[in-house]
Design a protein around this nucleic acid. Structure first.
Lengths: 402, 402
DNA sequence: GCTATTTCGTCATGCCGATTTACAAATTAG
DNA sequence: CTAATTTGTAAATCGGCATGACGAAATAGC
């Protein structure tokens, strides 16, 4: 017999709902929905046995979810077993949709994802946004959003919320961009510049990328470190299936972990931060290349061609990553480290030295480092799916908004 | 309107209980207890308004808690206000007690804490345990435990559980000491060597120290980093009022965060780890002192006397701490950093350079660094209180075990 | 001093949500 | 064709809190 370990606990489905009978019902609605989303079409009886409720209880929950358009009855199952066949239920493909949007440095993207997790509509517009003022950029984005929403509505979906990924720091109100250096934005309230009437969430690209990895990655654990390099170098810390944001929302600043305490000065005030060794600018300089458009593509291209200067620069960056990640892994003991976003394109040349350095500095089993399979799509998908998750976690909140 | 931020959520009272009507009741029992513990004697009506239930509901909850001996009715309040005076309720001082124990390198300690949080019995035995085998040490500890339990029982308390703090790594089963270098123990199951019949939890000294800080410290935030140096240098990461343990339970290894990537070799396999600069051994060497008993006391004494070698050694250690903590703060964005355990005795000479270094490397507001007020008692108190918290978080689990 | 007012604790009642029990429907096994 | 098995639903029950009413015990005002 053991007393409980006092430890941080997960968010889990609907854990924020009030602790009342109504809250319990809402959590049970969420459990039914989650079970059906995770394990394909199931009968009421199958759902009941999976989530530990009775068939009767599940029946009423399912009724409610069907009435709100979140579930569909597919009809009788073709059984190989004895007994009356169940009626298959599935998450609706014509219910609420999560609208995800991304403001990139040189593109805008929007997509719509349904409850099943499939992308049903998308729109992308290339074009440099660096140092354009927010108004025209967001007007363009609004136009794309309208397009995607219209397309989704054409397929019987209705938008349940909008989540926007931006390459910068976002205030905890999830609306205001505090600072986006690569866009030149600061203290911009996106709430007033985007379509009203849709619940809005704005968050850092890196955070959405990590969530995408958590929700869509194959075999992604519930505790990992997601490293990306869009605006500087950022890491998202995922603990027990939730993002660790920090008191001010600034957690994950891997780029300013000291690698060499007496290294070159960094605009952050420190010296020898990881960004001074592995940041985009530093790597370009070390490789002898000029900064310009599509810098990551340039690096990857040259490295693939065998340019030894570029390869050395990337190797050294990997080593610096290894040092910084050693610290992070020692502090957090994550199950794995995932390289995401633009970094995944450079992984072939970064990874060997990174892994080497990490292994050299670790006594026991080495924390595995992998590359995200989502590529540059991560943040956009994470944004759209965050809306979908919100619906799955509390279906009652959106029921009847159709 | 904003969609929810996907983030790690707190444990909170009884969040692990099942999501059923009974679970709800158990959580409400916990809420009543927590309210009474936090805000002194209160009437039923006062409790009701505080936790958001009706007087009627609180009445039945209180009845149950009184029947199980967790609450006491103190009798009518002397009111200055109009209306019938309430009957004051208070957490019982004669109910369950948490038994905390500590296996130190040169002492054993046990204490009993009641639901009110007051220490009601204690026993300490000095004596070096370094490299003694577990059996005799735990036999001695068992003897102390029996003493303390007997004393507590004399005051009408009954032991609800035993929590043991050890200077080493503990497996996630919370019973087995994987490795305690300073004791020379490894893979020792304490469950078989301690009094049976009591729910047992074993954990790292540093973790219990951090929990003590969380529960007993003044103005301690719910997100902080607790640094201690008993076995090497460890940090406990507290997120939203819960410990972050990591996948294998190894989170918080601040001692092996690289400070200088090419620094001296470390037994961990790395180079230039914090421990090579700020570990006990390193500091003693830098100060020109021989290792022996009570090394921390020796350092503090010499420093207080003005020994410049010792002071310089501690200053340098503080600087190294500053570098490592810069990394940690950038990754975790805690509300504060607390120096606890033995470190608190050396704080006067460590802090200035530590704060300097941290400030130098930080652009915005600097993360405040403070010293624990609990001193070396932290881990022992944390252990005892962890049992008490377990009771407060789920009173129904222990009701009727008296 | 007496009454009105206010607040407290408790009871009876009702509501909500899940469980239990029972049963009709739909299938397979023999 | 019957027995067995499983599904989905309806009716009754139970657990838990809310609501509303009431007596009890204090103060406030006359």
């Amino acid at each position: 017999m053991t007393a409980p370990l006092h430890e941080a606990r997960p968010s889990g489905p609907g854990r924020a709902l009030p602790d009342t009978q109504q809250g319990m019902r809402r959590r049970n609605l969420a459990r039914v929905l989650h079970a059906l989303r995770a394990e394909g079409p199931l009968s009421r009886a199958a759902v009941a046995s999976r989530i530990g409720l009775t068939r009767a209880a599940v029946s009423t929950l399912v009724d409610e979810l069907i009435r709100s358009g979140l579930l569909e009855e597919l009809g009788p199952e073709r059984p190989g077993r004895v007994g009356r066949p169940g009626s298959a239920l599935a998450v609706s493909g014509r219910g609420p949709a999560g609208i995800g949007a991304e403001v990139g440095v040189d593109h805008l993207a929007v997509c719509a994802v349904d409850l099943r997790g499939t992308t049903r509509a998308r729109a992308i517009r290339q074009g440099a946004n660096r140092d354009r003022s927010p108004e025209p950029v967001l007007a363009e984005l609004t136009e794309l959003i309208r397009q995607v929403v219209a397309e989704a509505e054409g397929e019987g979906l209705w938008p349940a919320g909008l989540a926007v990924a931006v390459p910068g720091l976002v205030a905890r109100d999830a609306r205001t961009v505090v600072r986006a250096p690569n866009l030149g934005w600061h203290d911009t309230d996106l709430g007033t510049l985007l379509p009203a009437g849709l619940p809005l969430t704005v968050d850092n690209e890196a955070n959405f990328g990590a969530l995408a990895e958590l929700w869509l990655g194959e075999d992604t654990p519930r505790d990992f470190l997601h490293v990306s390099a869009e605006i500087g170098i950022g890491a998202a810390v995922v603990v027990d299936g939730g993002l660790l944001r920090g008191t001010r929302g600034f957690a994950g600043e891997l780029g300013h972990v000291p690698v060499r305490p007496d290294g070159p000065e960094c605009p952050c005030g420190g010296r020898g931060c990881l960004e001074q060794y592995a940041g985009e600018e530093a790597v370009l300089r070390a490789a002898g290349l000029e900064p310009g458009e599509d810098r990551v593509g340039l690096l990857a291209g040259r490295a693939a061609q065998g340019d030894e200067n570029v390869r050395r620069a990337l190797r050294d960056a990997g080593t610096a990553f290894g040092v910084a990640l050693t610290g992070a892994v020692n502090l957090l003991d994550p199950e794995s480290v995932v390289l995401g976003g633009e970094l995944s394109g450079l992984a072939p040349w970064l990874l060997p030295s990174l892994r080497d350095e990490l292994a050299r500095r670790t006594a026991g089993p080495v924390c595995p480092v992998s590359v995200s399979g989502l590529g540059p799509e991560g943040p956009l998908l994470g944004a759209a799916h965050s809306v979908v998750r919100a619906v799955l976690d509390d279906p009652a909140a959106v029921a009847g908004q159709a």
